[in-house]
Each structure stands twice: as structure tokens, then as C-alpha cells.
Design a protein around this nucleic acid. Structure first.
Length: 455
DNA sequence: TCTGGGGTCCTAGGACCC
DNA sequence: TCTGGGGTCCTAGGACCC
């Protein structure tokens, strides 16, 4: 079969009802009872329902109010304790790394493992079954009794489907060559990328199962679902999946959002919520040591209509002040008179090093024409950009008599520092210069202030 | 008291460039 | 002057996943 391994060497592991299981483990009185973990406010949704709660119809992503109606008195409704979940997750991921260096963690409770990578495992069906059965036992004893389900197959797709087949505490090894037999009778919903909307569209063509989907031609699928999704469906229906287990995945965006208990029309309140979210996003951006060019806000109205507004900066920034200013400008364009149900902010378009030079120019050299030549209005190619030391803008570099200072812009042996202190007032920019372009601005003795260009 | 929060990927149209 | 493509960037929205 095209693009599929000859042996069942990809493991997909999934922890059963993970959040609820951790709660039941840590609080014996919850064992055997229905447990719902998720948002417990008026507008909350269920993150995880224990199997006891599922018996009453509670499900992930269901509004908590609906779960309250379905579940009997005595059901526990709990806020998530992410720290506890992360701790158990680490224990499990460590056990996976004992099997292979190639582990792709998909989420806190789910991972793929390439069992072929070490070259030492017995990859016969009986061999992997014994290996993974032992793994599941070790997970239970290392985590105080958490159960996991696993699928092992010749592809990620079949491994994931396999891990779902006998949940909870199930282990399915899909024998190579039997992939199609496994998937053909199943609903198209088991295929990755087939959600409610796609399933509904397919149903209108009489397609319910994977076998039905196989009967649709590639041109038809492409004309209905577009180039990418159409080809994807055609492949997945035939169990063609050659995706590798990827160890490291690059972060593409960082965001925070909040649904309010009641819709908020008050601009002052929205502004303070926005600032708080920018602080969270900016903090994580700082930890990632990268810089973002695009700022996006998200709003949701009382009727659940949702809109995003984004702006791409000419230069990547790591500064919360810049992100906040941009987000405020975008929010100012939104009509909030009916109140917002949700407000969010995110950053994307990351670059790994600062494009500080041009930001520096804006702050440090106000005599630069405000409207440059048309030819200069486009972003210069990266090669033509003046080299700049990769000092982190927003980086905390100075605490002196001026107050606390953060790098605002830097380049060509100079660094501008934005201060906020008793002597400077908020937002004042001072520029320091050095003959040594590599010198770090946190070494004050070698920097001389240049009052001529101070802002 | 229907509908969280954090992500990824894709599409489509318009601007702009060659 | 009219008529074109292709490619890339930006923006907005939608589907999907856990």
C-alpha cells in the first residue's frame, strides 16, 4: 500500500477520560461517581466527563448546563487543575521516551511514538502487543492507576483509530494489510479532518461510512471540498497516510481569550481585560524568545457571531506595549454597544530574531520622513536589512536612577531604552551609545547616554 | 441561563509586483 | 490602451482538533 509502513510500528497512546480520572485518583470519594471537569460557570463547557457521567449522556464540549440537566444529584462538577494534569502527563511522556526517542506529544493526554526508531524492538504483531501491554501496565503503576488506551499500526491514522476502538483501557494492534478492513465499516467521522460540517456535506451525497467515501471520485471530492481537503479525503478513505511522527512542532501563534459571564459593553472594562490578556500573551511570547508581526483581536457578540480583526506591523515586536497599542486600535473599530460575550487577543507571524533596526529608527530618528518613498514603503528583503544585534525588545535591561528600562530598539552600536520611573515619567525613551556594536545594553558603564536623541 | 480555550490549516479576494 | 498570467502578502472567516 502506498505510503504506509510494512509493519505496525506507530503507537498512538491516549489517556482515558484524563482530567476526570486524575480527579478520581486524587479524591477517593469521587471514585465510582459521575465527574465533570470543565467550566463550571454559567457559560462553561465540559472538558472531560468520567465514564460514569458519560453513562448519563454527558460529553466533552457539551455546555455544562446541559451536563447538569443530564447528570444525577451527587455528580461532581470541578474546575480543571492543569498543574496536576501536567504532572501526570510528564510521568507518562517519560515512559514513552523510554520506548523511543521519537515521541510526538499531541496534547497533554495524547502522543504518537515511532517504535521503529530505536531499531531494537520486536515489531511483529505479537511483539508490539506485548511491548505496549507492558507500557500500559507501567503507566498505571507510575501514575497511581490512570488507564490508557493504545493503537499500534502502520500509520498514524490507523494507530489513532485503533486506540479509540476499545476504549477505555484498550489495546488494538492493526495487522499490516488489514487496514482497509478495519476502516471501511466505520463512520467517516473517524477520519482526521472530518468534523460535523464535512460529515453533514458527505451525508448529503449518501456517504456515511468510509466504504461509501471510497466510491466518490477524486475530481468530485476536489470540486466539493477544495484542493487540499478533497485530496486528503480521497487518500484517507484508502488508508493512505505517510505522515511521520514529528518530535518538535513549531509554535505559530499565541493567544488568550475570555468569555464573560455576562456580555460586557463597558469600554473601560474591556480595555482592562484586553491589557490583562496582552500581559499573558506577551509573557509567553517573551518566554519563547521570538517576535511577532501580526496582532489579532477576536470578539464574539451576544448572538455568537464572531469576528477577528488583525494588523500586521512593519517590524516584528516582542513588546507588550506595542501589542497592546495595536490591539486597542483594533478594538476601537468594533461596535461594543450591545456588549461583547468574548474578547481575545493573539500574536502570530513569528520571527526568531529581532528586526530591531527599523523599530529603532522610528523611535530614535524622528527626522526620518513620515511617508517614505513608495519604493521604501515595502519591507526590504531580509538580506538588505541592516544587521542588528538580536537584543530582545521588551527585555528588562536596566534598573537605575531613571527607573526600570526595557530595550525599545537597537542597532548600529546604539540601543534605545524605554524607561518608566519617577524621573522620566512613563514611556520615556533614552538612547545610549557605544562604539562596540556587540556590547550588551545591560552593561551600563560602557554606555553613554545620548541626550541629543533621547525621546 | 445552549455553545470554553488553546491551537492548526485552508480558502478566497484584493493589493501589488513582475 | 488593453489584456494577461503567476506569485506573494495580507485579511477575514471557517472547519477542525484536543
Amino acid at each position: 500500500m502506498v505510503g504506509v509502513r510494512a509493519r505496525a510500528s506507530i503507537l498512538h497512546l491516549d489517556l482515558d477520560a484524563f482530567f476526570a480520572a486524575v480527579e478520581q485518583r486524587d479524591k477517593p470519594s469521587l471514585r465510582g461517581r459521575p465527574v465533570i471537569v470543565g467550566g463550571i460557570g454559567t457559560r462553561g463547557v465540559v472538558s472531560t466527563a468520567s465514564y460514569e457521567a458519560r453513562a448519563f449522556g454527558a460529553r466533552s464540549a457539551m455546555p455544562t448546563s446541559e451536563a447538569r440537566r443530564r447528570c444525577p444529584p451527587g455528580t461532581a462538577f470541578l474546575h480543571p487543575r492543569f498543574q496536576a494534569y501536567r504532572a501526570s502527563s510528564r510521568v507518562v511522556m517519560d515512559l514513552l521516551h523510554d520506548l523511543s526517542p521519537v515521541v510526538e506529544q499531541v496534547s497533554v493526554d495524547e502522543a504518537y511514538v515511532d517504535l521503529a526508531a530505536p531499531g531494537t524492538h520486536d515489531l511483529s504483531v505479537a511483539g508490539v502487543r506485548a511491548l505496549v501491554a507492558d507500557l500500559i501496565d507501567r503507566i498505571a503503576s507510575a501514575t497511581g492507576g490512570l488507564t490508557a488506551s493504545a493503537g499500534v499500526a502502520s500509520s498514524k491514522m490507523l494507530a489513532k483509530i485503533g486506540s479509540d476502538l476499545e476504549k477505555p483501557h484498550g489495546l488494538v494492534v492493526v495487522e499490516p494489510g488489514r487496514e482497509l478492513q478495519v476502516i471501511e465499516p466505520l463512520s467517516v467521522r473517524v477520519l482526521g479532518g472530518v468534523g460535523p460540517a464535512t460529515a453533514e456535506r458527505l451525508k448529503s451525497f449518501g456517504v456515511i461510512t468510509v466504504a461509501d467515501l471510497q466510491r466518490m471520485t477524486l475530481p468530485d471530492l476536489v470540486s466539493i471540498f477544495g484542493e487540499s481537503h478533497g485530496h486528503g479525503l480521497h487518500r484517507l478513505a484508502r488508508a493512505q497516510d505517510d505522515r511521520e511522527v514529528e518530535v518538535e512542532r513549531e509554535t505559530k501563534s499565541i493567544s488568550a481569550e475570555e468569555t464573560f459571564d455576562v456580555d460586557v459593553p463597558d469600554r473601560a472594562r474591556l480595555d482592562s481585560e484586553l491589557a490583562a490578556m496582552v500581559t499573558r500573551v506577551g509573557g509567553r511570547l517573551g518566554q519563547s524568545a521570538s517576535f511577532a508581526r501580526t496582532v489579532t483581536i477576536k470578539v464574539r457578540h451576544h448572538d455568537f457571531t464572531t469576528h477577528t480583526r488583525s494588523a500586521t506591523l512593519t517590524h516584528a515586536t516582542g513588546e507588550q506595549a506595542v501589542v497592546l497599542d495595536t490591539a486597542r486600535r483594533l478594538l476601537a473599530e468594533v461596535d461594543v454597544s450591545d456588549g461583547l460575550r468574548l474578547l481575545g487577543v493573539g500574536v502570530s507571524g513569528f520571527t526568531s530574531h529581532a528586526q530591531d533596526q527599523l523599530a529603532f529608527d522610528e523611535v530614535d530618528e524622528p527626522d526620518v520622513p513620515a511617508t517614505p518613498e513608495p519604493s521604501a514603503s515595502r519591507e526590504p528583503a531580509p538580506e538588505s536589512r541592516p544587521s542588528a544585534p538580536s537584543w530582545r525588545t521588551g527585555h528588562d535591561v536596566r534598573h537605575d536612577e531613571l527607573g526600570a528600562g526595557w530595550v525599545w530598539g537597537a542597532g548600529r552600536g546604539r540601543v534605545s531604552v524605554r524607561f518608566e520611573g519617577p524621573r522620566t515619567g512613563p514611556g520615556a525613551v533614552r538612547t545610549f551609545a557605544s562604539d562596540d556594536p556587540a556590547l550588551h545594553p545591560a552593561d551600563p558603564p560602557d554606555w553613554r547616554e545620548r541626550p541629543d536623541v533621547s525621546g
